[in-house]
Design a protein around this nucleic acid. Sequence first.
DNA 1: CTGTTAGCGCCTTCAT
DNA 2: ATGAAGGCGCTAACAG
Lengths: 341, 341
Amino acid sequence: MGAMSRTRTNRQPSMGDVAAAVGVSKTTISRYLHGEFGYMSEETRERIAAVIDELGYRPNKMAQGLKATVSHMVGVTIADIGNPFSSLLLKGIQQVCRSRDVQLLVSDSNNQVALERTNIESLLDAQVDGLIVNTVGGDDAWLADYCASADHRPMVLLDRIVEPIDCDCVSTDNRAGVAMMLDHLLERGYGAVVFVTGPAEGVSTRTARIEGVESYLRDGRIDGEVLVYEDAATLPSTLPGVLGRYAGRRVCLFANNDETMRDLLETLPESARGVVGLCAFADERWARYSGEGITCLDQNPVAMGRAAATALISRAYDGADGPYEVTRMPARLCVFASTRG
Amino acid sequence: MGAMSRTRTNRQPSMGDVAAAVGVSKTTISRYLHGEFGYMSEETRERIAAVIDELGYRPNKMAQGLKATVSHMVGVTIADIGNPFSSLLLKGIQQVCRSRDVQLLVSDSNNQVALERTNIESLLDAQVDGLIVNTVGGDDAWLADYCASADHRPMVLLDRIVEPIDCDCVSTDNRAGVAMMLDHLLERGYGAVVFVTGPAEGVSTRTARIEGVESYLRDGRIDGEVLVYEDAATLPSTLPGVLGRYAGRRVCLFANNDETMRDLLETLPESARGVVGLCAFADERWARYSGEGITCLDQNPVAMGRAAATALISRAYDGADGPYEVTRMPARLCVFASTRG
DNA sequence: CTGTTAGCGCCTTCAT
DNA sequence: ATGAAGGCGCTAACAG
C-alpha cells in the first residue's frame, strides 16, 4: 500500500504524496517549491523535480492561502457586466492582475444595490485580498462603513466614484470631457445643447456630467438644459417640446452614454436628421459607424481598469499606504459627421 | 485576556473566536452554521446568533473548501474579454452561478493560446470545481487531453467548440444561422453573396460558418464565395476585385462578426452604398443603428452563457454524468435597411 | 444536546 | 542538508 492514504480515488496528488514518493519530508518539498534550495543536495532537488513532473503535482493555492492569509485573488463587482464598457474595464484589470499573478473573482451586480452588497460580502468570504468596485450607486454609506471597518481589505472604486470615501478612486474626468465637447459644439456654431441622461440616482458619473453641463451653461456661452428621462418610451413625447424651446438656433443633443445615444437615434424623427446635432459619451468603435457617424467622447476603460488594478495591488500586496487618491482619466473627443452643423 | 490568541491584530474573527465567546465548542458553531439545530438548545442557538452578529463573524470559504474539497468557484476563460459578445456570455454565466451561490474566477486569454493554457492551469490551482472555456482555438489536443485525464474537473466549451471532445459544448447554430440569412438574401433578390471573415485558424465558429456558406453555395441557388482576410488594411485593394466578379448581379457582403462589419463599413466606397447589400453576425443593439441599419444574425450570448453554466453546475455539483451534449442555440434574424436590395 | 479527535494541504519555527 | 511538530479555519465521524 502507498505511504499516503487516499480517501477518495483519483485525488490530485498532494505535497505529502510527492514527499512520500521521493522519500523526504514535506518540508523539503515545500522548500523546493519556494526556490530555497540553498542548502539542498543537488540530487534531492533533481529527484523532487522528476517526481513532481511524473505525478503532475501542483500546489493547492487554497491551502497555501489558508496559511499565508493572502489568497492571490482580488474581487471585482461590476454594476452591469453586459455593458461593453464594463468588459473593457475587466480587460484592463486583467492585464495588470495577470502580470502579478493574481486571480479575479468577478461578480455582476445587475444594477441592483442589494446584489452588489451580497456580492461584496461573498467575495470577502472567499478571502479576496482586495476589491475593485464598479458600484451601481446609491449605497455610499455602506461602502464608506466598510472602508472604515477595522479588518477591511483595500478597495478601489472604479468609474462610479463616491466622495468623500476612504479609498482610491478611478474615473473619467467627466467635467473636463463635458467642457471639451461643449467647446467643440460652440466652435461648430451650435447655439444650444440638451444633455440627455437617465436618472442620476446616485450614479456619480451622471451627477458629475450633469453638474459639468450646468456649470458650463451658467457661463452663458451656450444655451441649453439637462433632460432626464426614466423610460425611453417617454422620449418621443417629451423631446420635441424640449427641442422646440430652441427653435431658430442650432441645437445639439448630448447623450450620456451609448444606450441613451441609441434611444435618441430611435426617437429622433427623420425630419430632425441633419437639423439637430448629436453627440455622446460613447465607444468610438460604434459611434463612428452609427448613423452618419456620431461625435463622441471616448473614455479609456482599459486604462481605467489598469489604473484601478495597479492601485489595488500596490496596497494589497506592496504595502502602499499613502493617502487615498482620486485618478481622473481624460476622455478623447472623436469628431464625426453628426456635429458638422 | 481573550480565550483565543490573535496572532495578528484585527484579524477577522474565526469560528474558534465565536466558540470561545459563546463558551461552546467549534463543532456546535459549525452545526449552527449548517442549520443543524435539530437537537440544539434554544438558548445556545440564540447566544450563538448574538455573538456571530456582534463579532461580525463570517465563515471562511477558503477553509471550508479545503476540507470539503469543493470550493464553490468555477473558472471561466474568455478568448477576448474586451469583446461585448464575451461580456454577455459572462452575464448569462453569472445569472445561473449567482442563483447557485457559486463564484466566478474569470481569466482573459487575450486571444493567445499560451495564455489560455496557463490560465486554465491557474484556475485549476485555485481549486475551481469546474471550467467554462471560451477557447481561442488551436489547442484542441491539449484540451482533449485534459478532459481525458483522471482527475479532471468538469468542463464546458462555450461558443468556440471543439469536436470531438469529451465534454459538454454550447454554441450558436451557425449552419442554421447562415442558411437563414442566405434564404433571406434570396428572398430579397440577391444573386450573390460574399462571406467575409478573418482567418479560421482553429476558431470553430468561423469554420462552421464558412462550411455553412460553402455548402449552401453548392446548392446553386445563389452564387458567391468566401473571402478570408488577415488584415483590414488589405480590404480596400481586394474587395473591389471580388465584387467585380459579380457585376450585373445584386451582391451582398456577409460579415462574420461585428468587427468585420465595421471593417467593411470602413472599406466600402461611397459609390457602393446602396448598391451592395450588407449583413453580419452581429449584436442587434449596434447593427440596428449602424449606417442605415444593418441586417444581422443576433446570437443569444446571455442564453448561451446560462446554458453553459447550467450544464457545468449539474455535473460539478449535482452529480450529473450522462453522455456529453452539444447544445446549439439558434440565432435570430433581424432585418434592417442594408438588405432592402 | 454537545464535545473530542483527527484531519484537509500547506507553511513555519525549531531541532538535528 | 533535512525533519518533526504544530497550526491556519473548518468539517466530520464518533463518543458521550
